[in-house]
Amino acid sequence: MLKRLRENKSAQGTLLALPTTFWMFILLIIPLILTAIVSFGKRSPDGNVIYTFSLDNYIRLIGISSDCPAGQTTCFNPLYVQILWRSLTLAFNSTVLVIMLAYPLAYFIARSHPNRRTTFLFMVLIPLWTNFVIRVYAWMMLLRKEGAINAVLGWVAHLLHINFVPLEMLYTPGAVLVGMVYEFLPFMILPIYTSLEKIDNSLYEAAADLGANPFRTFLRVTLPLSMPGVVAGTILVFIPVMGTFIVSDLLGGKQVILIGNLIQRQFLDARDPAFGSASSLILMVMTLIVTYFYTRKFGFGEEIVAA
């Protein structure tokens, strides 16, 4: 038996994948099936699920409401569509901003002296040692009316004898954007760094040798060769930003409700697991669609160099 296994490469692979497959099945596949079943159910008056097959939750999500002004049986309620659209645009904006901030930093680290690279990468990772929620709280301290940023601005204004009204930064869409960008920056820096670091120095020299100035070298050589890192980073940032609710909950208050918040509230406050499950599946489908089109255009972050 053991001897036969030693010769059978594909059986070895199956065996190695078995533990992960087992846990994925228990922790991902089964819950997903349960979520799907619940999503077709209905809320009972005491906050439980009545198992039926009804599309009501999905109809409600796309904005067709039965809770209408007098005289109408159905009407359009844009609330959930707005939430979905807000989540999508926020995820898009955050990802673009993260790329713009992460790329120069990753470039700087990749081109710095090898001895220092480890230190810089270490510094990128340090914030991840602190709990996610605590880091969001730290931003609350910075952004609130009596926070550190307003204190510094007030002090500068005082020095310049300008009248200063503290800025309202917390509980705005901008605060949520800042929080998202901050939280997910490292997940963009690392893959971009990895793909930049792999570019052999002789390629930069070859481009210069052939007459390309540093700017054109960047556009024609550096950028295309680092695209796998950008793609990988985008997937790592876009998907969690779509689903996270803590950042918008703490920094956005009631102003910025995202799909993540919606799901959370259905399960906890509204006690409507059926509608919450339907929202979860919609989020998953939306993320899958975006990722599918994105990766079809740019690949999956693997080498763009076709073998």
């Binding site: 002789s202 020299e205 070859a206 210069a208 040798d209 100035n213 060769l225 763009i304």
Partner: peptide
């Protein structure tokens, strides 16, 4: 004078071809 302004060209040991 930077390399891109010199009228010389190099064949590198590693070839340094642009893989993309």
């Amino acid at each position: 004078t930077p390399p891109f302004q010199r009228k010389v060209n190099t064949v590198f040991q590693s070839y340094a071809l642009f893989q993309h």
